[in-house]
Design a protein around this nucleic acid. Structure first.
Length: 221
DNA sequence: ATCCCGAGGG
DNA sequence: CCCTCTGGAT
């Protein structure tokens, strides 16, 4: 019988396990770096983090969360003032609108509480799988997938975990090769590694503990 | 595929 | 200057 063809080429499970093990050793403190105190604050911080560094989000949110202490305050905020508050994070008009629209819907449809179901989260303005996965994983401890941001996307391709560029397809590939108990952790690890070692502009292969097993190592070119 | 948008790094 | 940053909606 001829070998069954699969539509997607999977990386060697042993290789994947080795990469995960080494990432855990390299970044034992990997965690979500967005600052927040409430579920609402994490949801909003994550919406603001689109195409923006978490460092900049963290410099923006303290004043924002002080001025608007709860969902109601965001729902009733003057949109121009809200725009100015979120301006440093970029895409500020759209983000202000999404933040307010999301808070209004949480107020009117979810009794003021951030929903803990994927379907409900995805129905919110400015919330797609990446943001929903962050909230489900960090707050409710019930991740239904893997957070795929720009770092996870870049490194997943470098390590050969996926061949796709579409975040949804990348997430599906990762869910197939990473054990479910590591779904939250793998994103933290890839994001930490992507920021500190394997940056997009200048990957520091000389100081990377995975250099010898990395298909994209710059040192052997 | 394109738009939204500012700020820092190389 | 150009690229990148925990994306999402049209």
């Amino acid at each position: 019988m001829a070998a069954a063809k699969t539509s997607t080429v999977r990386p060697d499970p042993n290789y994947v396990a080795e990469v995960v093990t080494r990432l855990k050793e390299a970044h034992p403190d990997a965690h979500c770096e967005l600052n927040y105190e409430t579920p609402l604050q994490l949801l909003l911080a994550t919406i603001l983090s689109a195409q923006c560094t978490d460092v900049r989000v963290n410099k923006t949110t303290p004043a924002l969360f002080e001025k608007y202490p709860d969902v109601k305050a965001f729902a009733e905020a003057d949109i121009t003032e809200l725009e100015e508050m979120v301006r440093p994070t970029g895409f500020y008009r759209m983000k202000a609108q999404r933040v307010q629209e999301t808070c209004r819907r949480i107020l009117t449809e979810y009794d003021g509480e951030v929903p803990d179901e994927m379907e409900d989260l995805l129905s919110l303005s400015g919330v797609a799988r990446k943001t929903a996965n962050v909230v489900l994983g960090e707050i409710f401890n019930k991740a239904e997938g893997v957070v795929v941001d720009t770092h996870v996307k870049r490194l997943s391709n470098k390590f050969g975990f996926t061949t796709y560029t579409d975040p949804v397809k990348i997430e599906k590939d990762l869910m197939a090769i990473i054990s479910q108990e590591d779904w939250v952790k793998i994103s933290h690890l890839l994001i930490f590694h992507g920021r500190r070692v394997c940056s997009a502009r200048k990957p520091d292969c000389a100081n990377c503990s995975l250099e010898d097993i990395c298909p994209a190592s710059e040192l052997k070119k």
